[in-house]
Write a protein that binds this DNA or RNA. Structure first.
Length: 479
RNA sequence: GCUCCCAUCGUCUAGCGGUCUAGGACGUCGCCCUCUCACGGCGAAAACAGGGGUUCGAGUCCCCUUGGGAGCGCCA
């Protein structure tokens, strides 16, 4: 009898969905799919001061963009406060928790002396066994867990292995604050239990929390779910990648023009491997994913590799699909809306479509794709980039004039036909193809680089092409 | 400071005691292709942190050192 796997992704809505969180979500999602289980979503909004609606929206949006769907409706942790308090009552009744009347100042002092004596800063348990009759007048108590003081707490982690924490290093954590609100530590345990979570997959930064939470499970008499603490992602400089250290939200990657499938592939490859496989579909990742193949060391985020991977995905995406992907991404790309509007206005979407095969070959991101297509929306007379202007020597302009004449007679207007004409003009002039192709590129695109020049001719169409060539060609010689 | 975790090319990683004179990918550097830039093809440089064990045999197991990281809140 195997139970159905239930995982959960539990972000706190205090900011966007950063890349580390996205990978945690991905691993939860992959594992659930691989096991034929479910992934639940829980918003940990118990920190009322820092939680915002905007962050919730950003997180949901980020997950959706990445294609990581969750089962059922998201659970909002704050709404479950009553249930959390109920669990505390149970622990109180069972003698596994107690009221603590220590003031903030006392706590501060405890930490200070512990530090001074070289001990880990922790609560000294002074209210563990004191009768309520000694409670100071008018002070609301916090409820603490009566944690074991001896022995050790063991975490059998699917990734980290068997991790043993001495109980003397764990203090009596607060379950309920003096204002009656539940703490994260309590809420996580109660929610994971109530939601039927079988596998907790999260970052290693929660490893010690796992020990404390294990104690709560034991105090409640509940079975501890399987745990998998995955390594963190570091920045390119090796420093930790956190919100404070330049970590970007997933929406930033959307704005950089990455495809969700490529980002998923890249993220999956960070910390998890399936032999030497580098490029694989999400279906394959689901089929192959197993927690045992997740590594234990932190990985650095390498934007260059992501770009390379994204380039692969763009090239492998059929034109129609890529076009559709671009259209949905355009509102999020820098200059995207303008690009879109200009293509609409000039009626050149078809030209874009014609140029796409050559364009996608040269772009690693959708942003580069848009940039490469700029010549399509530019209007005559073209502003020639300085680097390309050098190509338009007077000899070159003479050649363009000859080409213009011969090209205008071309029928039908095809890449093959255009190539034949261009080659013939170059031959007749006794120059290499490049001597004509490069000036032609400058005239047609205003740049030194572009897709194959014959494809550009076709994408632009006869009228526009001839116009652009004439704009740069030498004027006809007076007779 | 205390507790815990980690350690193969610059980076992501394969390797689960012998098949490792350590493989793949990104990046870098050559060459080829070529109308430019890309793509693609071919090739090169590039790593088992150090020291002790265990073993017939260690990148693979154990210990120490060093170096990274995380956690130590009435934050999550």
């Amino acid at each position: 009898m195997t139970e159905t796997v239930v995982t959960r992704f539990a972000p706190s809505p205090t900011g966007f969905l950063h890349i580390g969180g996205a990978r945690t979500a991905l691993f939860n999602w992959l594992f659930a799919k691989a096991q034929g289980g479910k992934m639940l979503l829980r918003i940990e909004d118990t920190d009322r001061a820092r939680s915002t609606e905007a962050a919730i929206a950003a997180i949901l949006d980020g997950l959706q963009w990445l294609g990581l769907d969750w089962d059922g409706e998201p659970t909002f942790q704050f709404a479950r406060a009553d249930r959390h308090r109920e669990a505390v009552e149970q622990m109180l009744a069972a003698g596994r928790a107690y009221r603590c009347y220590a003031s903030a100042e006392e706590l501060e002092q405890m930490r200070a002396t512990a530090q001074a004596e070289g001990r880990p800063p922790r609560y000294d348990g002074r209210w563990r066994d004191r009768p309520a009759s000694e409670a100071p007048e008018g002070r609301a108590p916090a409820i603490r867990l009566k944690a074991p003081t001896e022995g050790e707490t063991v975490i059998d982690d699917l990734v980290q292995g068997r991790v043993v924490i001495p109980n003397k290093d764990l203090d009596d954590l607060v379950l309920l604050r003096s204002d009656g609100t539940p703490t994260y530590m309590l809420a996580v345990v109660v929610d994971d239990h109530d939601m039927g979570v079988t596998h907790v997959i999260r970052g290693v930064d929660h490893l010690t929390n796992a020990a404390r939470q294990t104690q709560i499970y034991e105090a409640m008499g509940w079975a501890v779910p399987k745990m998998a603490h995955i390594p963190l992602i570091h920045g390119p400089d090796g420093a930790k990648l956190s919100k404070r250290h330049g970590a970007l939200g997933v929406e930033a990657y959307r704005e950089m023009g990455f495809l969700p499938a490529a980002l998923r592939n890249y993220l999956a490859r960070l910390g998890w491997s399936h032999g030497d496989d580098e490029i694989f579909s999400t279906e394959q990742a689901v089929a192959w994913f197993d927690i045992g193949s997740v590594g234990r060391s932190a990985a650095r985020f390498d934007l260059l590799k992501l770009q390379n991977l994204n380039g692969h995905y763009m090239r492998d995406t059929p034109d129609d699909e890529l076009m559709a992907a671009l259209k949905t991404a355009l509102p999020h790309l820098p200059g995207g809306p303008d690009f879109s509007a200009r293509l609409d206005a000039s009626g050149r979407w078809e030209a874009f479509r014609l140029a796409l095969p050559g364009l996608k070959e040269r772009a690693k991101t959708l942003v580069e794709l848009v940039d490469g297509a700029r010549f399509l929306i530019d209007e005559r007379p073209l502003a020639v980039e300085p680097a390309a202007a050098g190509l338009l020597t007077s000899d070159a302009r003479d050649l363009l004039a000859r080409l213009s004449e011969r090209l205008s007679a071309l029928e039908p207007w095809t890449a093959e036909g255009a190539e034949a004409v261009v080659r013939a003009v170059a031959d007749d002039a006794g120059v290499k193809l490049g001597a004509l192709a490069q000036p032609l590129r400058a005239a047609l695109t205003g740049r030194k680089t572009s897709p194959g020049i014959f494809d550009v001719l076709v994408a632009l169409g006869r009228e526009e092409s001839l116009g652009r060539i004439e704009d740069q060609a030498s004027p006809p010689r007076a007779a």
